[in-house]
Design a binder for these strands. Sequence first.
DNA 1: GTCTATATCTGGATAGAC
DNA 2: GTCTATCCAGATATAGAC
Lengths: 203, 203
Amino acid sequence: MNQPRVQEKEATSRRIILDCAARLFRTEGYAATSLRRIAAASNMKSGSLYYHFASKEEIITEVLNMGVQRVHDEVWRSTAELPPDADSHTLVRTAVRAHLAALHELGDYSSANVRIYGQVPEHVRNAHKPIRIAYEDLWIALLGRCVSQGSLRGDVSRRFISTFMLGAMNASLEWGTPESGRLQQMADDMAELFLRGIMTSNQ
Amino acid sequence: MNQPRVQEKEATSRRIILDCAARLFRTEGYAATSLRRIAAASNMKSGSLYYHFASKEEIITEVLNMGVQRVHDEVWRSTAELPPDADSHTLVRTAVRAHLAALHELGDYSSANVRIYGQVPEHVRNAHKPIRIAYEDLWIALLGRCVSQGSLRGDVSRRFISTFMLGAMNASLEWGTPESGRLQQMADDMAELFLRGIMTSNQ
DNA sequence: GTCTATATCTGGATAGAC
DNA sequence: GTCTATCCAGATATAGAC
C-alpha cells in the first residue's frame, strides 16, 4: 500500500519544479528560462519534467495562477474577518497589509506574474486573465464598502483607485526582499500614503 | 560631398532599429527577441544590424538608457521652469504630469525599461544603473523643495515616498495606451491621489 | 550600408530504457 | 518517476560579396 507515498512524491516534485520555475522566470524572463535550467535547478534532467507537465506553457500557467490566487485568498480572508461595521481606514489598512504580506511571501510567484504577464504567449495570458479580473473585482468591492460609508472620494472612479493601488503595491516587489519586520512597517507606511496622501496639511 | 547624407542615413537606420527593438523587447521580453526579428521589423536582414551595433547587448543598453533619459529631462525642464516660490502642490502636479507624459510618449522605451530591467544580464543592468539613480535623486530633490516649505509629511522618508510615487506612475504603463486627452486627466487624478489620498475627509 | 551564407550553439519536445 | 539519446528549429555572430 505505497500508493500514497507515490502521490506524495509526485506532488513534492511538482512543487519543487514550480518553485524553481517561478524563481527563474522572475529573474531571467520567460523565454530565457529553458526547461533544462528548470530541470537542473530541480535536480532533474529535462526529459523528466514531461512526466509532471505537458509543456513549458503548462508550467508558466501554473506559476501565473499561483501568483494571484494566494494573494486573493489572503486579502479576502483578512477582510472577511473584520466586523461588518469596521471603518474604512481599518478596512483599507487590513487589505493593504494582507496584499503586501502575501505578495512578498509568495515572492517569486507574484513577481514573476507582474514581470512577465505582458510577455507570455497570448493564449496563456488569456487563460490567466479571469483570475486577475476576479482579484481586481475583490478590490472594487472593498472600495465599495468605503463608498457606502461615504468615506471614499467621489471625484475619481473606484476602478482607477483600485488599479492605482494595486500597481503601487506590486511595484514594491522591485524594491528587494524586506525582512518581515520591515515589511509590516512598509505596509503601514503605504496604507498611510494611500489614505492621507504625501502632504502634511490638506487645505 | 555626400558625407552628411550617409551620416543621416546611418542615424536614421539606427533609430529605426532602436524603435523596433524597444517595441519587441517590451512585448516579447529580452531573450525572446531575436536579432532576426528586430532586423525583420526594421526591414533588414540580421547581418546588417552588426554594422550599427556590436551586439544585442549594445542595443538593449541604448534602449534602457533612452527609456529613462528623456523622462528625466522632461521632469527637470518642466519643474525648472516653475517660479522658485511655486507651492508644493503645483510642483508635485507639474512633475507628475511631466513624468507621465514623457513615459507614455516614449511608450515602448520606458515600458521595456520597467519590464525587463530586472531580467537583463547583470553587467548590462549595472551599466544602466547610474542613469536610474540620477533620476531618483531628481525626485528626492523635488520632494526636498516640499520639505523646505514644511508641506511634506515627516513620518515617512523622502526616499520611500519617491520610490512609491515612481512605482505607482510606472505601473500605469501596463494599463494600455491612453489618448493624450485621457492622459492629462489620468495625470491629474493621480497627482490628486498622491497629494490628498483616496479618502474624502482627513480627520 | 546591406546582403547571403554559414559556423556554432542551445532551445522544446519525444521515444524508449530502466 | 527519472534517465539517456535524439530530432529539428531557431539563436548569435562572423565572413565576405556587392
